[in-house]
Nucleic acid binder design. Structure first.
Lengths: 199, 199
DNA sequence: TTATCTTGTGAATAGTTATTCACTTGGAGG
DNA sequence: CCTCCAAGTGAATAACTATTCACAAGATAA
């Protein structure tokens, strides 16, 4: 046996993380159990000691993704003093992760990950909807505190917030597009701020 | 022979359009030659009379997509009187297509479509970058005419423009998210306008 | 130490799908 | 009307990949 044994709980965790990494770096089309096994030093069949099958692995990877994503929000809340600043911090944390290639765009951007026939689509949408609601909540706090304009719909603002980063993440490596994510985020934040801040 | 014969040119066209439809409705993961053939009333092997293989079909589908996407810009230019209005019209046309399920999000949103190992990734990014540049050009015209603020970077504005619609397209059918795309677009346009219009 | 449970292995299986090929046949042009 | 090419067919092939299973070997507890 070439590989160290691990308790199934730790192994599941490791596999789920590795799966997410593979999804992020290569996308669902090329995701397969053989490569996943290899990435954690296991033979393909060993994966089945810890998961019922591929769908369950993907499911677990999405859980890891959700935790990472929601975790970002908590960190931003901790670091900021008011809701508007929370959004700004959250945006810049996203930017850093994307710049490091450690995050989206594949999973978060991806509706392809969401095959209609499985429950994956529903799960991804649930995660993203949850994220949206968290941002909406921050917006509402900002409106209550008077730092965000009250005549705008929180959902609309939250969607635009996500829109500040999504296209940039996707296009950052396109030919002829020279895009430093952090610099972009700083610029687009100024526009966003102008749109939503109270006068 | 169950199926009407067609000249290869017309058939190629038909197949490419059908391929795009399948990509939009089901995503790359479930895209296969058998279903594609069926959708145009052909046996799988018949596809190979008109294309060298799957990649060439996908390539042709992307061409169709590009033409549709770029076509939208031309239509918007025709219908509008000034650059700011062009953007508004373009946004509402996107919204209509998305509402009809006739367009994204799969292809446009999708970096999964873009496997690293083929040239697909590069092609998609090229198309999206081309679209971005067209929007940038409209923005520049608006700045020249004085309807768009001059102290903002056109690329940043263009990316935010795309960001107005992308997340909404993805999330419109998530549980607990009730989202009428056209209404969303009307609301978000007001914010965007506030951010970019000259005072 | 020994019995037992769990994790890992490698070979086998089965289903899917892209692709090829020998063939048929519709139809356009002589 | 005949010929011939292009378009369509269906069967065969060849990967690839998910999944199963019998077996091997750490680990743990008695």
């Amino acid at each position: 046996m070439a590989t160290q044994r691990m308790h199934t709980e730790a192994r599941r965790e490791q596999i789920a993380r590795a799966a997410l990494d593979l999804l992020i770096s290569r996308g669902i089309e090329e995701f397969n159990i053989t490569d996943l096994g290899e990435s954690v030093g296991l033979v393909p069949s060993a994966i089945y000691r810890h998961f019922r099958g591929k769908e369950e692995v993907l499911n677990a990877a999405l859980d890891v993704f959700r935790d990472k994503l929601f975790g970002l929000v908590e960190v931003a809340r901790d670091e900021a003093d008011n809701p508007l600043e929370t959004l700004e911090v959250l945006l810049s944390h996203h930017a850093k992760l994307i710049a490091k290639g450690k995050f989206m765009p594949h999973v978060m951007l991806s509706s392809d990950m969401a095959s209609d026939q499985t429950s994956r689509r529903a799960k991804i949408l649930r995660i993203l909807a949850g994220y949206l609601r968290k941002i909406e909540a921050i917006v509402r706090e900002g409106q209550k505190e008077g730092v965000i304009r009250q005549d705008a719909d929180p959902q609309t603002i939250a969607l635009l917030f996500i829109g500040m980063i999504q296209p940039a993440a996707l296009l950052r490596h396109a030919e002829g597009v020279n895009l430093d994510i952090s610099a972009h985020v700083a610029r687009v934040w100024k526009l966003f701020n102008k749109a939503i801040a109270s006068e």
